[in-house]
């Protein structure tokens, strides 16, 4: 920015008002510029670049890029593993969202009263939230270990031998095992949000309904739930977004997408295609398709956030 000095003589006052406006515009742009540059270089440019690269055959390393038009997309559409992975991504996202929110809602409603140890409960159930998915994943791989793991040990001890499974090695349940770990990590977080929402409902409402003869279930259904809607929307949306695009770490650490692709999600398959398949063009085509699939959720999130950012505090 050029530094300008303003002699405060009456003759230049008019000019000064004009330059002040200009100076304000300059200041505004300068202050916002770094954020704009970062968003451009590392979010929007990569998006455009990914769309461009998806039209080439490229191993990601050499200078040799061959234009193939939409052939990568045709390949993706004919790749059954990718569509399985997309199916798993949806199963994961929806499963995690439903289970986390139902569990959290039930627990939050139970906890929404003066109880001894409630503070401790909140602090304790929130611990996994701050932990890395890597640590959580490694730990739970151990809990699920078929021979020495805690879970099968427990089932053995209580006489439920028939429930014993290879939690991560059986293709029919491996994905659900991974999903349950995600639920374990994040439920405490949703309890906190929903509890905050419950506590913001004025007690008088419930009391009035109770005096009018409404039972507890009716109060919950007709008063609590509607009052809770913004908070629930927020909570559900957050778990959806999180599950769609940050399931990579857990899957990678716990199963690596196996056994026989039964836990493969879109992101693990994209990374696999890039680094093992050395097919960066196709990987980018997959990324673009995934982007189009999740953009609706992103748009919804942006709308909810900007319209009611009061819930987020």
């Amino acid at each position: 920015m050029t530094t300008q000095t303003f002699p405060s003589t009456p003759q230049v006052r008019k000019r000064r008002v004009m330059t002040l406006t200009r100076q304000r515009t300059m200041t505004g742009w300068l202050m916002a510029l770094p954020a704009v540059v970062f968003a451009s270089v590392f979010i929007f440019y990569p998006l455009a670049r990914g769309a461009w690269v998806s039209l080439f055959r490229w191993d990601g390393l050499s200078a040799d890029m061959t234009w193939v038009g939409l052939r990568n997309y045709v390949n993706v559409f004919n790749d059954p593993i990718y569509w399985d992975a997309i199916g798993h991504t949806f199963q994961y996202a929806i499963g995690v969202t439903v289970i986390k929110n139902v569990l959290a809602l039930v627990l939050a409603v139970l906890l929404n009263r003066k109880l001894r140890g409630r503070g401790f409960f909140r602090v304790a159930t929130f611990i996994p939230v701050i932990m890395s998915f890597v640590v959580v994943g490694i730990l739970w791989s151990w809990i699920f270990n078929p021979t020495f793991g805690l879970l099968n040990g427990l089932l053995n001890a209580v006489g439920l031998e028939s429930w014993i499974h290879g939690w991560l090695s059986d293709p029919s349940i491996a994905l659900w095992s991974v999903i349950s770990v995600d639920v374990w990590k994040w439920t405490g977080f949703h309890i906190v949000i929903i509890l905050a929402g419950l506590q913001s409902i004025p007690e008088e409402l419930d009391e009035a309904a109770a005096l009018d003869g409404a039972g507890r279930f009716r109060i919950f259904w007709n008063i609590t739930l509607p009052m809770l809607r913004p908070v629930l929307t927020f909570s559900i949306l957050m778990s959806l977004v999180g599950a769609f695009v940050s399931n990579y770490d857990l899957v990678k650490v716990m199963t690596g997408g196996g056994p026989s692709h039964s836990t493969e999600v879109a992101l693990t398959w994209i990374v696999n295609t890039t680094f093992s398949g050395l097919n960066v063009g196709k990987a980018n085509a997959m990324s673009m398709i995934l982007f189009l699939l999740v953009i609706a959720i992103g748009a919804l999130q942006l709308r909810v956030m900007t319209r009611r950012n009061d819930i987020s505090r």
Partner: peptide, 30 residues
């Protein structure tokens, strides 16, 4: 209050719609 602030705000906020995992490979290339 400066000219273009609305546009900049929308531009930056649109970044929220682009999940980072989805553009991981393009970001890697960049």
């Amino acid at each position: 209050r400066f000219r273009g602030r609305r546009a900049i705000y929308v531009f930056i906020l649109l970044g929220i719609m682009v999940p980072f995992g989805v553009i991981a490979i393009p970001v890697f290339t960049v």
